[in-house]
Design a protein around this nucleic acid. Sequence first.
DNA 1: ATGGCTATATGTTATAGA
Length: 259
Amino acid sequence: MRIATFNINGIKARAQALADWLDEAKPDVAVLQELKSVDEGVPREIVEDRGYNLETHGQKGFNGVAILSKFPLEDVSRGLPGDDSDDQARWIEATVAGDVAVRIAGLYLPNGNPAPGPKYDYKLDWMARMKAHAAALLETEMPVVLAGDYNVIPQDEDAARPEAWVKDALAMPDSRAAFRRILHLGYTEAFRAKVRGPGHYSFWDYQAGAWDRNDGIRIDHLLLSPQAADRLEAVGIDRDVRGREKPSDHVPVWIDLAA
DNA sequence: ATGGCTATATGTTATAGA
């Protein structure tokens, strides 16, 4: 089963790019972030015409997440538990009923800039809530995949110019520590289970020729419960997507799990 | 970098992103 995560930065603006990527990458399951659309504005036919089931959790203007699957989607839930006052659309979760049932969450973790400040506080609070929920998911003993835009550069090797991110919420020590706390529950970061070394990125800024200079960062991740990690066969980053017409600033990251 | 670009809604400017 191939599972991908893709921050598409506007599903309406990216309808053609999404269609082209689905046609060639053919993921079984994908989670999308930054729909920047309410549910009613999502061009569902792009996805459904290709044989996918689709569940969305949209929001006006920004945020918005979705999960699409060639297998049935069951027990769908929207929103990260733990704070009823949080109405930002950053979490969607469903059970993918394939050969093996997998619980998959699609997440869009807050950016947190400027740091310090209220947005950074929101990021760290959100990550603490995510940790609590991630722990609860482990107790199900299902294969669990937490996939999305984490807005965390885990290590300096995950940035082309780590010195540029020292005071940024994506790489601040507290952000990295909160990310590690989730890993320490028993999750495996899929990409680093398979690939070592620098030079692997999932985001390049639109500004300042970042793509042309390969000035990227790796912030889109898939975290696997032990039951999922034991099935991990392959990982990849669809880097070439960034060089196409009217691209998102992120590219898809994917894993293959054994059936 | 004092944000160089992009998408959206609040729309001929502001907000958010990272």
